[in-house]
Simulated assay, not measured.
Amino acid sequence: MIGEMLENVFIRCYVIIKLNLYFILLTVMGLIVVGIGPAFLTINQLFTEHEWDYKKITWKNAWLTYKQNWKRGNALFGIYAGLSLFIGYNLYLSVQVQGILFLVIDFLLVFVLFCLFVTYSYSLVLHSRFDMGLANLIKLAFITFYSNFFMLVKLIFGIGIVLFITYKFPGLIMFATMALIQIICIFTAKQWVSIIEDKLAADGE
């Protein structure tokens, strides 16, 4: 029993490291700017399809998935990154000004940045599960953000732990951080994804 448990732990660690290294390699191969979006989509889709089956998570599958997701990955990342930069710049300007009104604006802009980060994460998960247009994907991601408060809390808590541990052990950026964040997003959204699938199945009958 202990041997089986240790084997499962080893397999999970191996999958996390493998996905994280694939993410870094694919990001670098895309010259970072146009590689990071497709790389995020790739590791998300690989884990969604195969979870802990490390034998099916291969470089060949990763590369094929990366090429298939290149256009959609860059479109998603470009939209969210552009909006985040715009909001971030306005937040930078806002914090320079004192006053209760601008303090409220600061908190509002921080919330919008947080909303963009979470909806981007949900967009990656939904893309890996459903075939839909870019506009509908983004709309569904925003709906997901407001769909379940406890799902959102679990996501924040999980990512917060990963970021805290990474802060203490920066080497995890190379071997685990990005993959762990994607895995947390996938697992926290599982129940919501099942609800959508049941709804689609009911509408299709």
Rank of each mutant, 00 (worst) to 15 (best):
M1Y: 13
M1G: 15
M5C: 14
L6E: 08
E7W: 10
E7V: 12
V9H: 00
I11T: 14
Y14S: 15
I16Y: 00
L19E: 03
N20Q: 05
Y22N: 02
L25N: 05
T27S: 12
I32H: 02
V34C: 11
I36N: 04
I36Q: 06
G37N: 00
P38H: 05
P38R: 05
F40P: 08
T42H: 00
N44D: 09
Q45L: 11
E49K: 13
E49W: 00
E51F: 10
E51K: 15
K55R: 15
W63K: 12
L64F: 13
Y66R: 04
Y66T: 04
Q68N: 15
Q68V: 12
N69G: 14
K71C: 09
R72W: 10
R72F: 09
G73L: 01
A75G: 10
G78M: 03
I79W: 09
I79C: 09
A81G: 12
A81H: 03
L83H: 01
S84N: 06
F86L: 15
I87H: 07
I87N: 06
I87L: 07
G88Q: 06
G88P: 04
N90R: 05
N90L: 12
Y92C: 08
S94D: 12
S94H: 07
Q96L: 11
V97L: 04
G99R: 04
G99A: 05
I100K: 11
I100H: 11
I100R: 09
F102L: 11
I105D: 06
L108C: 13
L108K: 09
L108D: 07
V110W: 07
V112P: 01
F114C: 12
F114Y: 15
C115F: 13
L116M: 08
V118H: 03
T119M: 01
T119P: 05
T119I: 02
L124A: 08
V125W: 05
V125N: 03
L126P: 03
L126T: 00
H127K: 11
H127P: 06
S128H: 00
F130V: 05
M132D: 04
L134V: 07
A135G: 11
A135T: 15
A141P: 02
F142W: 04
F142G: 07
F145H: 03
Y146G: 11
Y146R: 12
S147E: 13
N148M: 05
L152D: 00
V153T: 09
L155C: 10
L155W: 00
L155D: 00
I156E: 02
F157N: 10
F157P: 00
G158H: 06
G158D: 04
G160P: 02
I161R: 01
V162T: 03
I165E: 01
I165H: 07
Y167V: 01
K168M: 08
F169R: 01
P170N: 07
G171P: 01
L172N: 04
M174F: 15
T177D: 01
T177H: 00
L180Y: 07
L180M: 09
I181Q: 04
I181G: 02
Q182I: 10
I183A: 03
I184E: 00
I184C: 05
C185H: 08
C185M: 09
I186D: 06
F187P: 03
F187Q: 11
F187W: 15
F187C: 09
T188Y: 01
W192P: 03
S194W: 07
S194T: 11
I195K: 15
I196W: 00
A201K: 15
A201Y: 09
A202L: 13
A202G: 07
D203T: 13
